[in-house]
Nucleic acid binder design. Sequence first.
DNA 1: ATGCCTAATGCAATTAGA
Length: 262
Amino acid sequence: MKLATYNVNGVNGRLPVLLRWLEASRPDVVCLQELKAPEDKFPEAAINDAGYEAIWHGQKSWNGVAILSRVGKPVETRRGLPGDPDDVHSRYIEAAVNGILVGGLYLPNGNPRPGPKFDYKLRWFDRLIDHAAELLASSMPVVLAGDFNVMPTEHDVYKPERWLDDALFAPEVRAAYFRLLDQGWTDSLRTMHPGETIYTFWDYFRNAYGRDAGLRIDHLLLSPSLADRLVGAQVDRDVRGWVKTSDHAPVWIELADAPSRC
DNA sequence: ATGCCTAATGCAATTAGA
C-alpha cells in the first residue's frame, strides 16, 4: 500500500500538476494540505475522474486538508483537532481507509516568532500530541501525515544556523516534535534514510530548488504496528521542478500487507 | 532588516506562506 502526503499550495491552481502526479505515482491514499479553497470549490469531479474518492475540509483563501483514496472511500472519523472549539482553521481531517486510520494535518507555520501566530502553533502542537496519544492508546494502525512545518534536526535544513530563530526550527517546536515521536511514532522517511540529506520543500525565492536549498518539513509518522510494515519511503522531488508546481514535493511510503491473523 | 516568488481575492494591493 502506497500512502502519500502533498502540500499542493492551492488545489485548483495546482490541479494539472496534481493530476499528472497522481497518474505517474498512483498512490493508494493521499493526504493533501493547503487546498486554499472553500468547501464548495474542491475539484471533486476531476479527482473522481482520476480514480480517487475524496473527503475534504475546505476554507476560503487559506489552509484546507483532504484525504484521497483509490482503495475505497475514506470513512471520515474526525475533522478538526479536539481541544479548542474557537479554532476555525481547517487543518486536520481523519478517516479510516483500507484498514488504516489516516490523520491528515497541516500544522501552523508559526512565524513571526515570538508572537500570537507562534503561540497558536505551540498550542496546536500540544493538541496534536494529546490527540496522538489517544490514537496510540486505541492500538489501531495509524499514520499521521502532512505538513508539520518543523525541521526535526540540523540534517533537515540546508543552513541550520540561519533558521535557529525561525518558527519552523525553534528549539521549543523541535522539542514538541520529539515529544510527539517519543510517544512511539516512527518518522518514516528518516527511518528509511538515516543520515541522508533529504528535503521536501524548496522556497520559490532565490532559485532555492536549483541550489537545493531545501527543508524537510513534510512527514509521515507511523504507529508501532504500521512501522513494522514500512518497506519504502521517498520524495518525488522531480515534481518540484515541474511548471506551475507547488513549493512542496510529494512524499510517499510503501507499507507491506498486514500480516494475516490465524 | 527587507526583497526575492507564488496563490487567493477580486481586479489593486494586501495577506500569508516558510
